[in-house]
Computed example of a mutant assay.
Amino acid sequence: MEQLQNIRQQLIQMQQELSDKLERIVNHITTEANSDWSEQAQERENDEVIDALGNEMRRELKLVNLALHRMKEGEYEFCEDCGETINIERLKVLPYTQHCIKCASKAS
């Protein structure tokens, strides 16, 4: 199905973008600290924010990788909870979802 192929390409692009962003975060965090104490304090605050963003990106990357694995296994279109088919429009909007809208609504 062409729509699934397009979603797969979208997931691969997301995977690459997230990996690139995570690499930049790691490079930023591992740079040497400023010798000025007041600058170091500001850098530490910034590092906490960047670290939180990195954690969110790692979570999203994990979901993207899982979605690609599920595609490979032929499980992608099916809800993890009820086994029903996930609407293709939902997959287009949220390509790494594992749940149909009904089960996702119940979980909220």
Rank of each mutant, 00 (worst) to 15 (best):
I86D: 00
V26F: 11
G74C: 09
G74D: 06
C103E: 02
K106F: 12
H99S: 00
Q98F: 00
K62I: 05
L94K: 05
Q13C: 14
R44A: 11
V26K: 13
R90V: 09
I12E: 15
G83I: 10
A41T: 08
H99R: 09
A104F: 04
I86G: 02
W37L: 14
S105D: 04
T30Y: 05
T97C: 07
E45T: 12
E80I: 04
E60W: 11
D20P: 00
Y76Q: 07
E80V: 03
E75C: 03
S108F: 11
A52G: 05
L22Q: 07
R44C: 04
T85N: 11
G74F: 02
E73D: 13
Q98I: 06
L4N: 12
M71C: 08
L53Y: 01
Q3H: 04
S35W: 12
D47L: 15
F78T: 01
L66K: 11
Q98W: 01
N55K: 10
R24Q: 14
M57V: 02
E23Q: 15
N65H: 12
L91D: 05
L53D: 00
A52H: 07
R58P: 03
E60Q: 14
S38F: 08
M14I: 03
R58M: 07
L68Y: 05
Q10C: 11
E73P: 00
A41F: 15
N46V: 11
Q5R: 15
Q15N: 13
S105P: 00
Q15D: 08
A52C: 11
S108T: 12
L63E: 07
D20R: 02
L63T: 02
N87L: 00
A33E: 13
G83E: 13
W37G: 04
K102A: 09
N46Q: 15
L63P: 01
H69Y: 09
Q15Y: 14
S105K: 04
Q9S: 11
P95S: 10
E39Y: 06
G54N: 05
S105F: 01
N27W: 10
E45F: 12
M57H: 07
E32D: 12
E45H: 14
I86C: 00
R24K: 15
E32N: 12
E39C: 03
H69A: 13
E56D: 14
I7Q: 02
L4K: 09
E32R: 11
G74E: 06
I101Q: 01
C79S: 01
V26N: 11
N87C: 04
I25Y: 00
H99L: 05
H69E: 13
R90H: 05
H69I: 14
Q3E: 05
V64T: 10
N65Y: 11
V49H: 14
S19Y: 13
V64L: 08
Q5C: 02
D81I: 13
K102W: 08
E45D: 14
R8C: 09
Q3F: 04
K92D: 09
Q16R: 10
Q3G: 04
A104R: 10
I86R: 01
K102F: 07
R70Y: 05
T85K: 13
R8T: 12
E45P: 02
L4R: 09
R24H: 14
N27H: 14
I86E: 02
A33C: 01
I7D: 01
G54C: 11
R59D: 07
K92L: 07
H28T: 07
L66T: 13
I86H: 01
G74T: 01
